[in-house]
Write a protein that binds this DNA or RNA. Structure first.
Lengths: 163, 163
DNA sequence: ATAGTGACTATGATAATCATAGTAGCAAGC
DNA sequence: GCTTGCTACTATGATTATCATAGTCACTAT
């Protein structure tokens, strides 16, 4: 392919996220990091990705300050990868992906009688289910429930594209 | 590239989502659909993607029942694309991507004094901000706050990979 | 001395992407 | 009735990313 289009200068927040997250390998590596896998070989094995892809994406994630590479032993040198605060904040995205897949990506009965992965909120003990709620009132949040107001810069950018 | 690895048979819900969402073009097209753009040319113009990529991804989204293609005029035949219920449920993912980007993907002051896109919950009037909350207790939901319990099938799959 | 481990890098075939140009069906204007 | 324009695409060729497989390097363990 030719160099893929750069989205890092768009004013649209989804576009900026897509620059990093619109990539299967990145998503799978992040998933493994959230699951607690920190070592190169463990990530490569579990994701099924080849070592150069894992290597390239981890480098990218380090450059983006989503992950830090740290030596856990000096001799011989061995490294592990950890999520930064910026990386840990991607939890919401992976969590939303999980929620969608639990609802739509399995045939009935495929996972037994429960979800493929059940999540309990440690603080209150509630099963978080698969839906998002409004931080203001606690009601379910769905497409159409929010009123969007783009910043002037974003509005201007979209109009310039004539779409 | 060789044929990209198939993730649709993994038991991990994030993996299944990544099969569809780990693609820049899919993400950008979905964003435009959520913004109300339905016509081919409008999507191509706003995303900046070439027409064959838009064509290929819309076909994929139709096959996946995320989008439906409908004629809005018979003569000459003209079509538009709309999100299905399955597609509308992806709102949570795009919303989470937006939340992350608002927090991390802009330099200070780049969007003026507010977010690039402000969202208000129509039902209660609250600004939803950029954080997710627990549906059970309403507290902020972050990495580490949830206890995950994989289904037996998912656990077995991961152990088989030796990671 | 040989085998093993962990973290990669090198190589070559294949396939996806981009930019640009072109097609098809039809309507409206001159 | 001929050209221009609109919408929704398809075709072509150059470029580059990805995969599978093999190999490297710096050690440690037996």
């Amino acid at each position: 392919m030719p160099k893929r289009a750069d989205l890092s200068d768009t004013f649209c927040p989804v576009g900026r996220s897509a620059e990093l997250l619109g990539d299967r390998a990145v998503l799978l590596i992040l998933r493994d990091l959230f699951f607690g896998r920190r070592r190169f070989e463990a990530i490569a094995a579990n994701t099924g990705l080849g070592p150069q892809l894992v290597s390239a994406r981890l480098k990218l994630l380090v450059v983006e300050h989503v992950v830090i590479k740290q030596a856990y032993r000096e001799r011989p040198p061995r490294y592990e990868y950890q999520l930064t605060a910026k990386g840990k904040d991607l939890f919401g995205v992976l969590y939303a992906m999980r929620n969608w897949a639990e609802k739509w990506a399995y045939t009935p009965g495929e996972t037994g009688d429960g979800p493929a992965m059940r999540y309990i909120h440690r603080a209150c003990g509630a099963d978080v289910g698969t839906e998002a709620v409004c931080p203001g009132c606690g009601e379910l949040l769905r497409y159409g429930d929010l009123k969007g107001d783009p910043s002037p810069a974003l509005r201007a950018e979209q109009e310039a594209k004539g779409a």
